[in-house]
């Protein structure tokens, strides 16, 4: 979801730091409160915000599936160990935590999220931490995870084509070697694109 397309909608115009502060505040509120009215209100607000974020619904499909499974399992466990009221409360709390977060993810680009991370960690620079490098590391992780998954699949296919049974180690070793090779070129590209030439990163 973090790397999904971000469409223009009412929530897109809201600054990313404001959205993230609101989500954290709502999350804390829902975590400590057991008021059904409050949880229901946040669920409603989250649902409206998600629609307003205009997400690419088909991309939400997989995530929504896992979320639904988690909801059903949680509700089932609460029904077995406690009662229907507890199950309803748990379902409401989970929905209240997830829906606003999904709305923010759907209306905020990874670049904006990284800028928020950079802004929030600015005080750590005084302690000597290279926060812009940390942010770049996060961006690179988001950027290359899908490609690593593709490469692992290609390696599995190649090994099947040569009559090998799929196994973890024969895929992991060449994948690691490819990653090392790519990291060398990637580091050159980052230098060539002047990342380390700036004296001050925003």
């Amino acid at each position: 979801m973090l790397t999904a397309e971000v469409r223009h909608g009412p929530l897109r115009a809201v600054p990313a730091p404001a959205k993230i502060v609101v989500v954290i505040a709502l999350g804390l509120l829902c975590a400590v409160s057991s008021s059904r009215v409050l949880l229901g209100g946040v669920v409603g607000l989250g649902a409206v915000a998600l629609v307003a974020a205009r997400p690419v619904w088909r991309r939400l499909g997989g995530l929504a599936g896992w979320w639904a499974v988690a909801l059903v399992v949680t509700a089932g466990m609460q029904l077995v160990t406690r009662d229907a009221a507890a199950a309803t409360g748990s379902v409401l709390r989970m929905a209240a935590l997830c829906l606003p977060a999904l709305a923010v993810m759907a209306s905020t680009t990874p670049e904006e999220l990284l800028d928020v991370v950079l802004g929030a960690t600015r005080p750590l620079r005084r302690a000597g931490l290279a926060t812009h490098t940390l942010a770049l590391t996060v961006a690179l992780t988001i950027r290359f995870v899908p490609e690593l998954v593709d490469q692992a699949q290609t390696l599995r296919d190649a090994q099947r084509a040569r009559g090998l049974r799929p196994a973890v180690l024969p895929v992991t070793v060449p994948l690691l070697l490819r990653c090392l090779d790519r990291s060398r070129t990637l580091s050159e590209a980052i230098v060539a694109r002047s990342f380390f030439d700036r004296s001050e990163h925003p």
Binding site: T109, E111, R193, S194
Partner: peptide, 27 residues
């Protein structure tokens, strides 16, 4: 400017517009 053999190696940011802005931001 440098265009590498495999363009995937030099696309750093996850989203296209952000990646094109990357060099400008660094400058």
């Amino acid at each position: 400017g440098f265009c590498f053999q495999d363009p995937a190696d030099q696309i750093v940011m996850p989203v296209v517009a952000d990646d094109i802005a990357f060099g400008l931001k660094n400058r």
